[in-house]
């Protein structure tokens, strides 16, 4: 087992991670993570760090949502340490952000803009969360990041 594979397995087994994954606010189940782990285990070495990032994203996203769902201003949500850690994962997680946005309508708009350098939302749709998500969905499809 190389380092990246080892870190992914360690992530899966860490008790606090399992707890976060099993909490209601985490958008991905342990089963899904394990199946992804098996998929990546048989793939190229270069994809294994990606698995670790994906796992980190889902765990951090769960923590962020749980801690900030009651906050009234997105600008405060964006200051949470878990959110800043998510940004530090870089553009590799953009597809995961898009998928979670479309599934939950949680506020990934700022993260998507920061990680892609793009802003597909016209000002007249600012605040209309469904429409904003729709603009990012179209962008994701154009970029072939979403099927």
């Amino acid at each position: 087992m190389n380092d990246s594979e080892g870190s992914a397995v360690a992530l899966l087994d860490a008790p606090d991670v399992v707890r976060a994954i099993e909490s209601q606010d985490v958008a991905i189940t342990r089963d899904t993570l394990e199946s992804k782990s098996k998929y990546f285990a048989g793939s190229e070495t270069s994809e294994k760090p990606m698995l670790a990032k994906l796992l980190q994203f889902h765990v951090l996203a769960g923590i962020w949502k749980q801690d900030t769902s009651m906050l009234s201003l997105s600008s405060e949500k964006y200051e949470h340490p878990a959110y800043l850690q998510i940004l530090s994962l870089g553009p590799d997680i953009v597809t995961a952000l898009l998928e979670d946005l479309l599934k939950t309508h949680d506020d990934w708009f700022d993260a998507l803009s920061r990680l892609t350098g793009e802003d597909p939302i016209p000002p007249q749709d600012y605040g209309f969360i469904s429409r904003m998500a729709g603009h990012w969905e179209l962008w994701g499809r154009r970029k072939r990041l979403l099927r």
Binding site: S72, S74, S75, F109, I121, G127
Partner: peptide, 9 residues
């Protein structure tokens, strides 16, 4: 909609 004085809201 989400009302907020900034951040594309």
């Amino acid at each position: 909609k989400w009302w907020e004085p900034g951040g594309r809201k």
